[in-house]
């Protein structure tokens, strides 16, 4: 079966006066129908850029310098702007970190929802309004029929993010890209928003690409998780496998460095150093200067993603070596 979204060898570059920076370097992954894919990484790893590249909203001077993006078997990375605009909203919905950037403060929630619905679907004003109320009700806005005529600033942060989710789902998209949807919210509100997002997408059969730095959110929401490091995929696989038995040393380090509520470790495992800046990505494996298991090959050649047991892929020489030894 063709996956809903397929990203192949995606390269995103930023030309600067000191040379071209490669922010995403040959990133490949699929999102299956109805699947929630988590995209994690530290700031600057390129997770938001991946989302922006897919929906064709890279901020200039950033540009796609290579690779292909396919949505249900059709290429979308080279579409003219007008066609891409129609896909955005209709087939791919978006939820951003700050609800205020996705809502226009000058229009009521009703106006924005109805406009989105009628842009993408052939329905009457009255029908669109009914749909909009239904959506708001579904995302958990109390007294939706009355509150729909309020302006965005009348809503609290969490309620606003619910409105944004309703807006993203208004045209019944096949894929929702959620970029840090809960980062700006309080802990007690975060959980509610994640639940709403997850439920409503499952209900409508929409796939989700959930971009976040928060492993906890991924653990609770995603089916599979992709780990980005310095613009490259380090590991991708089912959430449970990756979290409980990470194979890439970076993922393992990342998991060890998260303090948890249940265990009381005297010291956290720490990865020395920090992620390289884009203008100083080391030769070979980008993680090699910080890797506890580094060996010669890591310093000279970049490892490719190799398939592992249980639908997992890892880009690390440790496993290619293993594969070679066996073969």
């Amino acid at each position: 079966m063709t996956p809903l979204l397929s990203v192949r060898d995606l390269i995103v570059e930023f030309p600067t006066r000191r040379g071209t920076l490669r922010a995403l370097d040959r990133v490949s992954f699929d999102i299956a129908e109805g699947e929630v894919l988590g995209m994690v990484g530290e700031s600057g790893a390129g997770k938001s850029l991946t989302g922006a590249a897919i929906i064709g909203l890279l901020e200039p001077p950033g540009r796609i310098a290579g690779g292909e993006i396919w949505l249900r078997g059709a290429r979308i990375d080279n579409l003219p702007r007008e066609k891409m605009r129609r896909i955005r909203g209709r087939r791919i919905g978006m939820v951003f970190q700050d609800p205020l950037t996705s809502l226009n403060p000058l229009y009521t929630v009703a106006q924005q929802l109805i406009e989105t619905i009628r842009t993408h679907m052939d329905v009457s004003e009255r029908e669109a309004r009914a749909r909009a109320v239904g959506l708001l009700d579904r995302v958990g806005i109390p007294a939706a029929a009355r509150r729909i005529d309020d302006y965005p600033h009348h809503f609290s942060g969490g309620m606003r993010q619910r409105v944004v989710i309703a807006l993203a789902l208004a045209a019944e998209p096949e894929l929702v890209i959620a970029d840090e949807p809960t980062t700006a919210l309080d802990v007690s509100v975060q959980a509610q928003i994640i639940d709403v997002l997850k439920e409503i997408c499952a209900e409508r059969g929409a796939s989700v690409m959930l971009i976040t730095h928060d492993m906890g959110v991924i653990a609770e929401t995603a089916d599979r998780v992709a780990v980005l490091y310095a613009g490259r995929l380090a590991e991708i696989g089912p959430v449970r496998d990756v979290i409980q038995a990470a194979e890439h040393p970076y993922t393992a380090g990342l998991m060890g460095s998260i303090p948890t509520l249940t265990q009381e470790a005297a010291r956290l495992t720490q990865i020395p150093g920090s992620m390289p800046r884009l203008n100083a990505i080391p030769q070979g494996c980008a993680f090699n200067p910080r890797c506890p298991r580094v060996f010669d090959q890591c310093r000279t050649a970049r490892p490719e993603l190799v398939a592992r047991a249980g639908a997992r892929q890892v880009a690390c020489w440790l496993y290619e070596k293993e594969a070679q030894n066996v073969g």
Binding site: S188, Q192, I194, D214, A219, I258
Partner: peptide, 24 residues
């Protein structure tokens, strides 16, 4: 208790969190 329930569970213990309600 509500705050503790709201913390995402990294251990994947399958602990069903009590739904947190309302906002500050």
């Amino acid at each position: 208790r509500m705050l503790l329930d709201a913390v995402p569970d990294l251990a994947l213990s399958g602990r069903r969190r009590r739904p947190v309600t309302g906002e500050i």
